[in-house]
């Protein structure tokens, strides 16, 4: 059996696995020194093998097309970027933030992309049919997700009117393992009318089984504090909003997402999938 898993390294390296296979393999990988070694070796190949490519001239005008498209993505939302000036992004008296966070204008741009995604989610709100299959708890979570979306919408509106909410910080959430994991997301902390809200949004997450749920954690030092459970839609997208007001003296070092057997765990029981850098 073990040897069979070892063979699958090829498909793992080449991204030829579905989420379940991948998960099973990653469990194997964590405990298999020979696979780890081999994987490291394969990864190291990328410093040599790509140079075998025959040098080719990029097509006429490619640079302009590519860069225009990349930058256009950011500017698409109706929100003018100047709404988020450096002065608006300030530290909140509630919370001390440590350096790993992206602060300032970068945070604003991340919020912009959050808002962009928010528009997508509302198109996918035809979750009603799916909720039948979900447990009561999951239904509640789906409701919370909608709330999170509404929160984003509210933030958007208010910002357009001149704004009462401040983006305190924003960070990407990325896979923490060495291995390739498609899921990703972002965490944003917003201060709005004296309320401190954590908004989390994820995409490309693996399918949940049974009563499983994703859970957000605010990590202070080594201590994880639960910050909301959530589920995802059929496209692997999900969101949660969590009120941080009673975390006044919390030093937020990191934000992480785990996969839990049950919603609303008090301590992480499952694997941490995503974390801020």
């Amino acid at each position: 059996m073990t040897e069979k898993q070892c063979d699958k390294l090829v498909d793992y390296f080449n991204g030829q696995m579905d989420d379940m296979e991948k998960e099973a393999f990653e469990t194997h990988l964590a405990g298999c020194a020979s696979c780890q070694e081999e994987l490291a070796e394969w990864e190291a190949l990328s410093s040599d093998l790509p140079y075998l490519s025959t040098p080719a001239d990029p097509p006429e005008g490619m640079k302009k097309r590519v860069l225009d498209n990349v930058f256009a993505e950011e500017e698409e939302p109706a929100l003018p970027q100047k709404n988020y000036t450096e002065s608006k992004v300030k530290k909140n008296r509630f919370t001390k933030f440590s350096s790993p966070w992206v602060m300032g204008t970068a945070a604003a741009v991340l919020l912009l992309s959050l808002v962009g995604n928010g528009i997508l989610w509302s198109e996918r709100q035809d979750l009603a049919s799916e909720t039948e299959r979900l447990s009561e708890e999951a239904e509640r979570l789906a409701f919370e997700r909608d709330l999170a979306e509404q929160n984003l919408a509210t933030v958007l509106e208010e910002e357009e009117e001149g704004g009462v909410s401040d983006v305190l910080l924003a960070s990407n959430l990325a896979s923490i393992g060495e291995a390739e994991f498609s899921g990703q997301g972002s965490a944003t902390i917003i201060s709005e009318n004296g309320e401190l809200e954590l908004l989390i949004q994820v995409t490309d997450m693996p399918e949940l089984q049974g009563s499983e749920a994703f859970q957000a954690w605010v990590i202070e030092g080594e201590v994880p504090i639960p910050a909301g459970s959530f589920t995802i839609d059929e496209n692997g997208n999900g969101a949660v909003s969590y009120n941080l007001n009673d975390m006044e003296d919390t030093q937020i070092d990191q934000i992480a997402i785990s996969l839990e057997p049950q919603p609303n765990s008090l301590q992480p029981q499952g694997e941490i999938l995503l974390a801020s850098q």
């Binding site: 140079y51 490519s53 990029p58 490619m62 640079k63």
Partner: peptide
């Protein structure tokens, strides 16, 4: 990196449009 990435992508995906 334009040329290196483009050439590498071209080797993999086999058409200039796809590589772009």
């Amino acid at each position: 990196y334009e040329k290196l990435l483009f050439s590498f992508a071209l080797k993999m995906v086999r058409s200039p449009e796809s590589a772009e």
